[in-house]
């Protein structure tokens, strides 16, 4: 080993070790975690793709796909001050088919007593207009977000529900599909279906010990009747069109508070 190589190796080792040490962070006393659990339900029971259900309009339904984006999460303290999760780590895609995706762990939440949670169902306008370099993780259209993006009309699909029902047209193989997006447009104003939901709860403590778990119940049975009646027989396929606004008005209000536990 030549002298310069020895030096190089030594240098690299020390750099490497140094990097290793500096990356190690002691958990700070001033921050903790919050866990959000999304429970997709139908008639108060866990949604099951194998089961057949009947919606409020008497239509028999089976579901095959349910995905939605949750983003721009904010927590409000008892005193009214808010903490916004840093935007780059505030995009999540919840998929019924992927149990792990239904539990979101938020790290580095400043300690304190929190009494409300705010989140967007969908993806904010700004992110919808950014270059490909800002579309990583949950927003990667070639990986996690496959099928959740319109390529001909640039923008994310915020909420996607698919299934079969005898009420859906036979020529459509009894399939119904609701693909709801629309961030308001970039060069011209277009439809905006970005919805924000705030859920208030009895104050819970975030400390360095154990994070509270906030259950969010997503009542898919009320997708069809919460605000506007959505009958599969009348609207079995809704994507980019006026009616999608009515659907987004429904789904925003099916995200409701479940249990809030301090563990």
């Amino acid at each position: 080993m030549s002298k310069s190589m020895k030096f190089q190796v030594l240098l690299c080792c020390s750099v490497f070790l140094f990097c290793g040490f500096s990356r190690y962070e002691k958990p700070k006393n001033t921050e903790g975690t919050v866990i959000l659990k999304f429970n997709n339900l139908f008639n108060k029971e866990a949604l099951d793709f194998e089961k057949a259900y009947t919606n409020a309009h008497g239509e028999k339904v089976k579901f095959t796909l349910l995905n939605y984006f949750i983003s721009n999460i904010k927590l409000t303290k008892e005193d009214g001050s808010t903490y916004a999760v840093p935007q780059d780590s505030s995009y999540f895609l919840v998929k019924q088919s992927d149990p792990a995706s239904k539990e979101i762990t938020l790290n580095h939440i400043p300690s304190g007593k929190y009494s409300a949670l705010t989140f967007t169902i969908g993806v904010d306008s700004l992110r919808n207009t950014m270059g490909i370099g800002s579309r990583t993780g949950a927003l990667d259209v070639g990986a996690t977000a496959k099928g959740m993006y319109w390529v001909w009309n640039s923008g994310y699909i915020f909420f996607k529900l698919e299934g079969t029902s005898p009420a859906a047209p036979e020529k459509q193989k009894n399939v119904f599909n609701y693909h709801i997006g629309g961030f308001g447009g970039y060069r011209s104003k277009t439809m905006n279906n970005i919805k924000t939901r705030t859920l208030a709860f009895k104050p819970v403590v975030v400390s360095n010990r154990k994070g509270p778990v906030i259950d969010i119940n997503v009542e898919i049975d009320h997708f069809f009747d919460q605000v506007n009646p959505i009958k599969i027989a009348e609207k079995s396929s809704v994507m980019w069109g006026e009616f999608s606004t009515k659907i987004s008005e429904n789904y925003v209000s099916i995200f409701n508070l479940g249990n809030v536990s301090s563990k």
Partner: peptide
């Protein structure tokens, strides 16, 4: 004008079933 970023313009042709009929992944 449905696409507003050059980065995303190839996807339109790539995933259109009468063009390249592929999936990005």
């Amino acid at each position: 004008g449905g696409v507003h970023s050059l980065d995303f313009s190839p996807l339109n042709a790539l995933e259109n079933e009468v063009e390249l009929n592929e999936q990005l992944d």
